[in-house]
């Protein structure tokens, strides 16, 4: 097992390195001089001197391979450089927002799993009944409805409902407070984006749970369990669900990274200053170093989640032996 873990951790390196090369090249080689775009973007005349200063500041006057070495060595030692836009260190910019986005991501995941597992199981054991159709339609709708629009509708719905019930509309708190300082204030801000992203996320998991359950329920050992007179409830939870979880766990892991992508848009709706907001601001400001760092962060989260998922497999399925 420990040998497998080491191997898997080592295998992460080429993926992250590859992603790094890709992002690096995209930001350097594609059309446009970063400094030219930035300085001209400010609406000022471009002087050669200012360009040279800007290039020197971000090490762009060095040859490409030297720039890449700087980039790779910096990232390997957790020195991500500084933002081209605010000129603060990137770790500072990201650190401020990471906590908020991570909280929403975790809450979104919990919401999604809490919705998806019961619905997926019901849909499978009541296959082709009206309940199955309702769940499937609910799930397909979840994939179709953009989470940012759902967010707008949640805000609008709350405004209208609180207006009717309490006479005055309730507005989302604007200022962010960490959960350990003011849990109520914090939750009243974060629960809505978690719901909006969680619903979409749940749709994918519901569908996977349903098809995995359907597959498992046709296995011989389920027939055996029924034949020996086990209670249907026991068969479903202890025999079927446990075995159906394997692909579902993978999906929960994979989708976690995509959840962060979804947050990019949803945070905008709820005016939350998380990583997503930072990402959009960075793209708008042509802040290449920051975009680069954020993309690498998401890739790292994705790769690490995949590793965790693989290891969780063993816990769910003792048939898998890593050697």
């Amino acid at each position: 097992m420990s040998k497998y873990v080491v191997k898997r951790v080592l295998l992460m390196i080429p993926t992250i390195l590859g992603a790094g090369i890709l992002v690096f090249l995209m930001m350097r080689l594609l059309p446009g001089d970063i400094c030219l775009i930035r300085i001209a973007g400010d609406g000022m005349g471009v002087s050669d001197e200012a360009l040279a200063r800007c290039r020197a500041e971000f090490g762009l006057d060095k040859p490409l391979w030297a720039q890449f070495i700087d980039f790779a060595v910096g990232y390997a030692t957790f020195d991500f450089g500084k933002s081209m836009w605010t000129t603060n260190p990137i770790t500072h910019e990201i650190g401020l927002r990471f906590q908020l986005s991570l909280q929403i991501a975790i809450m979104g995941t919990i919401t999604a799993v809490a919705i998806a597992l019961p619905l997926g199981v019901i849909s499978a054991i009541r296959q082709n009944t009206w309940m199955d159709y309702v769940v499937r339609t609910f799930a397909i709708a979840g994939i179709a409805i953009p989470s940012f629009w759902l967010g707008i509708m949640i805000i609008l719905g709350m405004l209208i409902l609180t207006q009717i019930w309490f006479g005055s509309p309730w507005m989302l708190p604007v200022e962010y407070r960490p959960i350990w300082e003011d849990p109520l204030h914090n939750l009243s801000q974060t629960i809505w984006p978690a719901l909006a992203t969680g619903y979409r996320y749940s749709a994918v998991i519901t569908r996977m749970t349903r098809s995995a359950m359907l597959e498992v329920l046709r296995e011989d050992y389920i027939r055996t369990a029924r034949a020996k007179g086990l209670m249907e409830k026991v068969i479903r939870t202890r025999h079927a669900l446990k075995n159906a979880m394997l692909p579902v766990v993978t999906l929960i892991g994979i989708e976690f990274a995509f959840l962060i992508g979804g947050l990019v848009v949803t945070e905008q709706v709820f005016n939350l200053n998380g990583l997503g907001q930072l990402f959009v601001d960075a793209v708008n400001a042509h802040d290449y170093t920051l975009v680069q760092a954020l993309v690498m962060l998401v890739v790292a989260v994705f790769v690490v989640t995949n590793l965790v998922v693989d290891l969780v497999y063993a816990w769910f399925d003792p048939r898998i032996h890593y050697s």
């Binding site: 995209m26 992508g261 979804g262 990019v264 959009v280 975009v291 993309v295 994705f302």
Partner: peptide, 8 residues
């Protein structure tokens, strides 16, 4: 994630 790559 697709949207992240698209944004980049």
């Amino acid at each position: 994630p697709a949207i992240i790559l698209a944004l980049a």
